[in-house]
Amino acid sequence: MTWAVLTVLTLLAVLLARVLIEAILGPAGVLPESTLTARPDLRQVALVVIVAPLLEETLSRGWLSGRRAALRFALYGAAALGLLLAALIAPQGLRKIVALAGAVTVLVGLIQWSITRHRQRNRVVPGWFIRNFRWLAWGSSLAFALLHLGNYEALTHPLGLLVVSPLMLGGMLLAYTRTRLGLRAAMAHHAAYNAVLVGPAWAFG
């Protein structure tokens, strides 16, 4: 029940925030246009509903358990996110190479995490993590939102960054799901949200 409420709340909050941002800044022409197709094909639906929730939740919120093994993986995740963000602004010829480097970084991190996560000393949550949890959660949500700039045309105005601000709100709600209900619940939450957004466009577009 809690999972369903959080999923519906995320849909309402993000969509309302999008409407407000568009109403305030849309007429000024500072918001970038979306690069997503109006009617996604089946491959795009699979990426959005299955691949994106698994990858993004692992990178953005998998480490919010605070365990040392997860935090070590977060370093790989941060490096991968940095590379993926760099791919957005890299010259066209280098984008695939930079993005591939990000994917390899994630793979290496996952391998190390899977090998070390069951060791007792890697299951401890450091005190500094507990003290700074709120800032870490906000930071993860900000990185999550900025990563979605790849869904838009290049920015022409600094205020264009606000186009992804609704996703930061969604990221915070996903962080709540992750910490209260677990990573799998957050993945399912994310997948359900994406399915509601792209499902009708694919089925009836």
Rank of each mutant, 00 (worst) to 15 (best):
L146P: 02
V14N: 00
G102E: 01
A69G: 05
H118C: 15
A52P: 07
R123M: 08
A145F: 03
H148I: 00
R61T: 11
S34F: 07
A195F: 11
L25W: 04
A188C: 13
A137G: 07
G29K: 11
A175W: 00
G62D: 09
L85C: 11
P53H: 13
L197A: 15
T10L: 06
M187C: 14
T2S: 15
R61I: 07
L197M: 11
G150N: 07
L161G: 15
S65T: 05
L183V: 06
L16D: 04
I97M: 05
A70N: 09
I50L: 14
L142V: 13
R123F: 08
A188L: 15
T10P: 02
E33K: 12
L12M: 06
I130Q: 15
I89R: 07
E56I: 01
L149Y: 06
L25A: 12
S140M: 13
L75D: 01
V49N: 01
A69D: 03
L84I: 09
L47H: 15
A143G: 12
A86G: 02
V19A: 11
P40V: 13
E153I: 02
A28D: 11
V51P: 09
V19Q: 15
V106G: 00
H118G: 08
A80F: 03
A87D: 02
L146W: 00
R95S: 00
L15P: 15
V49P: 06
A69V: 08
T35K: 08
V163L: 10
P27S: 08
Y193F: 08
W3R: 06
G77L: 00
P200F: 04
I21R: 09
V196T: 10
R123W: 12
I111G: 05
L54K: 01
R119Q: 08
A80W: 02
F144R: 09
E56P: 06
G109I: 01
L167Q: 07
A137T: 13
L16G: 07
L147D: 04
A103T: 03
L147N: 08
L84E: 04
V125T: 14
G26N: 00
R178H: 03
L149P: 02
A46V: 15
L197G: 15
V8C: 10
R43N: 13
E153Q: 14
L31W: 13
A191G: 07
L15S: 12
A74Q: 09
S65G: 14
A79M: 09
S140W: 03
V106Y: 06
L183T: 13
R134W: 14
A185N: 05
L54G: 04
L110S: 04
H190G: 08
G82R: 08
S34P: 05
R121L: 03
